[in-house]
Amino acid sequence: MSNTSTGKTRLKTSAMIASIAAEGQATRSAPFGHALTALAAERPDIIGMTADLGKYTDLHIFAKAYPERYYQMGMAEQLLMGAAAGFAKEGAVPFVTTYAVFATRRAYDFMHQTIAEDDLDVKIVCALPGLTTGYGPSHQAAEDLALMRAMPNMTVIDPCDAIDIEQMVPAIAAHKGPVYARLLRGNVPVVLDEYGYTFELGKAKLLRDGNDVLIISSGIMTMRALEVATALEADRVDVAVLHVPTIKPLDVETIAREARKSGRLVVVAENHTTIGGLGEAVAGVLLRAGISVPFQQVALPDAFLDAGALPTLHDRYGISTAVMRDNIRRWVG
């Protein structure tokens, strides 16, 4: 956008942009929409449902391919969840999309009572997780993992990139029971292809090993963790990265095994508030297993977050690559 007072060009970032791809980073367009559409060709029981957000959750791709299996419920998330429960009782497998805040805050009781209590086969896939929009507290789902972890029968997933999402879709469709999955939409970075990665429900994966620091991360923070690990090589800080895409059920065995390796600082990095997410889940694992290690969290504060451009907010709240790198460098001394 042009700055008319100076004649110089100034780059501006919309608060609503949810893509976290860096400039020049490889991406894939709408991996969720394409993966679901491909799976639906083999699974006639799969239907798509949304609350007026098909275009903004990439479900419009499914709608175009299977209009007779697509249900637009309007801006009524409680109705969306109740109707999905009804479809599941009749043998369908609904993939339900909306924004994470609208599912976890507005329709929580409907998910709890109509879906989770009956252990129904409903897959709830939600965009704008954590701090991936600058629209302020009304749209920032900073506490969604804590809410959904607390719901009995609910599987909870926080994918890292396009590969995670593409492989997650058939995995959660095959899983019997309700699932809550965070969604990266639009042009989604491709990161995990360099690490021989395969998504497995309930499994954490060690992407790289290191002797000084173990970063345990989920979602977009795994991208950041890998960037930090590369950046800290110049400081001779050797960083391991353990990606935890399934928040519930947690891969306790792998987390405990990696944390037991002596001499490493354990850092949990998550795009979520410090309360009730991956950090506290991992801390509980370590405490119950009797594992005593130096421990730090990279997470959002227990606060209502500001509105603004994402790069600014990520720096402000400590989840950018640069701030995370500097903090880890300071922690290891």
Score class of each variant (00 low, 15 high):
residue 304 F to K: 01
residue 167 Q to C: 10
residue 142 A to Y: 01
residue 308 G to P: 04
residue 304 F to C: 00
residue 72 Q to H: 13
residue 168 M to A: 15
residue 124 I to F: 01
residue 186 G to C: 02
residue 196 G to A: 09
residue 243 H to C: 15
residue 75 M to R: 11
residue 217 S to L: 07
residue 14 S to P: 01
residue 291 I to R: 05
residue 174 A to P: 06
residue 151 M to P: 06
residue 232 L to Q: 01
residue 193 D to T: 09
residue 311 P to D: 06
residue 12 K to Q: 14
residue 145 L to D: 13
residue 204 A to C: 05
residue 219 G to L: 04
residue 29 S to P: 00
residue 39 L to D: 12
residue 26 A to F: 07
residue 311 P to W: 06
residue 191 V to R: 00
residue 305 L to S: 05
residue 133 T to F: 01
residue 206 L to A: 10
residue 242 L to K: 09
residue 276 G to I: 02
residue 205 K to C: 11
residue 31 P to R: 09
residue 72 Q to F: 11
residue 189 P to A: 12
residue 10 R to K: 14
residue 269 A to Y: 11
residue 146 A to V: 05
residue 55 K to V: 12
residue 49 M to F: 04
residue 307 A to P: 03
residue 50 T to W: 09
residue 36 L to Q: 09
residue 91 G to T: 03
residue 63 A to W: 13
residue 282 V to Q: 00
residue 34 H to A: 10
residue 302 D to G: 02
residue 228 V to D: 03
residue 120 L to I: 08
residue 327 N to W: 05
residue 147 L to F: 08
residue 291 I to P: 08
residue 16 M to H: 03
residue 116 A to E: 14
residue 143 E to Y: 13
residue 54 G to W: 15
residue 233 E to K: 14
residue 295 F to H: 00
residue 78 Q to H: 10
residue 23 E to Q: 07
residue 296 Q to P: 00
residue 232 L to R: 02
residue 158 D to G: 03
residue 116 A to M: 14
residue 69 R to W: 11
residue 293 V to S: 00
residue 244 V to M: 10
residue 150 A to R: 04
residue 245 P to A: 15
residue 67 P to Q: 12
residue 137 P to T: 08
residue 157 I to G: 01
residue 309 A to S: 14
residue 161 D to E: 08
residue 175 H to E: 14
residue 134 G to Q: 02
residue 230 T to L: 05
residue 46 I to D: 01
residue 225 A to W: 03
residue 31 P to Q: 12
residue 51 A to V: 03
residue 167 Q to N: 13
residue 127 A to L: 07
residue 274 T to R: 11
residue 150 A to K: 03
residue 253 E to V: 09
residue 85 A to H: 08
residue 152 P to L: 03
residue 251 D to E: 04
residue 21 A to N: 06
residue 266 V to S: 02
residue 40 A to M: 05
residue 241 V to Q: 03
residue 92 A to D: 05
residue 170 P to F: 13
residue 30 A to I: 01
